[in-house]
């Protein structure tokens, strides 16, 4: 065990260290989803931790540690991306065209021709969606979409917190999250079709028409 001497001289340090240790699994998980690669994820977290340690005096309120740390992680990821030429530049502020059609898995699962699936098709579907399916669908999202899903669904941050982490307006968080979920559900549906787990009635009709 570490001696208590350091703690007495620097009352905040132990708190900071403890908070950092507690959040490390989460930071690594987020970094892994961002970089899609274990060794890059380790480098990313380690760089973010270095930045955090250099700037720890700037953290005024210990209660906001988690949001602050994720903001550093996100910014570090963006600057890593800029340095790598093989990755398209990600712009967290840009908005996509508003005309993209919404996609709700729920509606697909309630198409009349899927009724042979029993009384609760959505439960059936969710029971068969594996962790890997979700990871794959998440990985397919563009960085700016994956980020909001991670921060909201995985990390449980509120819209204003996400807005602060990503430096975008709350309205953009809302619309981007809706778009991200729609795309995520679309990929899950597409994956289920590709693996033969479901047959899209629309698809079947098309293939049966000579």
């Amino acid at each position: 065990m570490r001696s208590n001497l350091a703690i007495e001289t620097m009352p905040c340090s132990d708190d900071f260290e403890q908070q950092l240790t507690d959040v490390l699994d989460r930071l690594y998980a987020a970094a892994l989803r961002m970089t899609k690669n274990r060794s890059d994820a380790e480098d990313l977290v380690s760089d973010a931790v270095t930045k955090a340690l250099k700037n720890k005096d700037k953290l005024k309120d210990p209660a906001s540690f988690r949001g602050w740390m994720f903001r550093i992680l996100t910014n570090t990821f963006i600057s890593h991306c800029r340095k790598k030429k093989n990755r398209p530049e990600i712009s967290l502020a840009e908005t996509d065209n508003e005309n993209e059609e919404e996609f709700w898995l729920f509606d697909r699962l309630h198409q009349p021709l899927l009724l042979f699936w029993g009384s609760n098709p959505e439960q059936e579907f969710l029971n068969n969606v594996l962790r890997e399916d979700l990871a794959r669908a998440l990985d397919k999202l563009k960085d700016e979409y994956r980020m909001v899903v991670l921060l909201s669904d995985v990390e449980g941050f509120s819209y204003p917190e996400i807005a602060a982490i990503l430096d975008i307006p709350v309205g953009t968080v809302r619309s981007r999250l809706a778009r991200a979920r729609s795309r995520l559900q679309k990929s899950l549906w597409q994956q289920a079709i590709d693996t033969g787990f479901v047959k899209d009635p629309a698809d079947r009709l098309r293939s049966e028409t000579p």
């Binding site: 892994l32 380790e42 380690s46 962790r131 990390e155």
Partner: peptide, 19 residues
């Protein structure tokens, strides 16, 4: 909830040691 659960990972020892 499924997405939240799919996002959990354990930081490897190598990273813990680096930190």
């Amino acid at each position: 909830t499924h997405i939240r659960k799919s996002g959990t990972e354990q930081a490897p020892d190598s990273l813990r040691n680096r930190v």
